[in-house]
Design a protein around this nucleic acid. Sequence first.
DNA 1: TGAATGACAAATT
DNA 2: TAATTTGCCATTC
Length: 109
Amino acid sequence: MTVITSAHSPDDFRQRVLLCIAAIPPGHVATYGQIAMMAGHSRAARQVGTILRTLPSGTPLPWHRVVNRLGSLSLTGEGLLRQRRALQAEGIHVDANGRLDLTRLRWQP
DNA sequence: TGAATGACAAATT
DNA sequence: TAATTTGCCATTC
């Protein structure tokens, strides 16, 4: 029988990240590092971005509510435009530099 | 299997 | 605040 149940496998971390992002309330944002810390790896902020990048199109996950620690969008090209549009649709103002007011919008559970 | 890549963060300058 | 350097680790080649 293949039980395994490695509580710290990369795949498990991925699931935790997805759950944390799904829990971000509309109108608020969280940082990559914040998600990583909630998922159990305070230094895996980069992997959060990697995981989001590998998401299938049409995912119900509010991935646009995840920004970097400066409160700016780390995406480039079309992804940046889509995220900015999705945030504005929730009432979050994003300036021309792709930045928003983290002190006001940061999700604090 | 090993090396390169990257939707980050912290410390330093 | 911005630019550089270093550490981190899942994903890709």
